[in-house]
């Protein structure tokens, strides 16, 4: 992050999905900066929606924009193009005009983190300190069964191919998979290494944990000490 509290804007990629949707990507890698930039663009579009805008959603490293192309196409003065539709080019122009306003100073900085009491599974394979010391940020909301988190101010580890047997995972379970920390939003089946449990009602449906929200896991002191951990 720059000293003024703003992230510099990386090169932005526009990727059409069809005639009524496109992705605005802030990079190829999942980083805190990229996710927060997408959140910020989403906030800008909510404040100043373009005609026909239907929905925006933060996905991966960018923002998916869904719109009705016909109002935009009807008002367009752009020349015909063989590949890209008028509606798409108009929507893209609107978003490009908003990009200078996209800074993450209005992101989650300064907001109170969500503190989730974590009880470790008896056979937890992880060192408790690993979880306790980190402040995590939620990203890639939209999975219907899990909330994905990464550790704040640390690069996301690259995805690895991993074999694992799927097993039942109850709602509220905290697990590790492919470099990400996940919280089960409902009873599901997954190949995670389950390390503990948070109250399921605090994260039910993902509604109480928006993208970009800081999360701190809290462990009861006796449990923590019993595992030989020490407070940072």
């Amino acid at each position: 992050m720059a000293p003024n509290g703003k992230f510099p804007l990386p090169p932005v990629l526009f990727r059409p999905l069809n005639e009524a949707g496109f992705l605005v990507l802030f990079g190829e890698k999942l980083t805190q900066e990229n996710v927060l930039l997408a959140c910020c663009l989403q906030a800008q579009l909510r404040k100043a929606p373009f005609p026909g805008l239907i929905e925006t959603e933060v996905v991966g490293t960018g923002l998916m924009i869904t719109y009705d192309p016909l109002p935009l196409s009807a008002m367009s003065h752009k020349a015909e193009d063989t590949c890209e539709s008028k509606g798409y080019r108009e929507a893209k122009s609107y978003v490009e005009a908003l990009l200078p306003e996209v800074v993450t100073a209005s992101g989650t900085d300064g907001e109170e983190p969500l503190r989730l009491p974590l009880s470790f599974a008896p056979d937890s394979p992880l060192e408790p300190k690993l979880i306790l010391q980190g402040c995590y940020v939620s990203y890639a909301a939209g999975f219907d069964n899990a909330l994905c988190l990464f550790e704040e101010n640390r690069p996301i580890p690259p995805c690895r191919e991993k074999e694992g047997k799927r097993k039942p995972v109850p709602a509220g379970s905290v697990g590790l998979w492919d470099g990400a920390v996940l919280i089960a939003l409902r009873d599901t089946e997954a190949a995670w290494a389950v390390i503990g449990q948070v109250p399921a009602d605090r994260v039910a449906g993902g509604r109480s944990v928006p993208v970009g929200k800081k999360i701190i896991f809290e462990l009861p002191e006796d449990d923590f000490a019993g595992r030989g951990g020490s407070r940072p």
Partner: peptide, 11 residues
Amino acid sequence: IYQTQAEECLA
């Protein structure tokens, strides 16, 4: 088909 054609079909 191209996005342009898709928009024309919708229109």
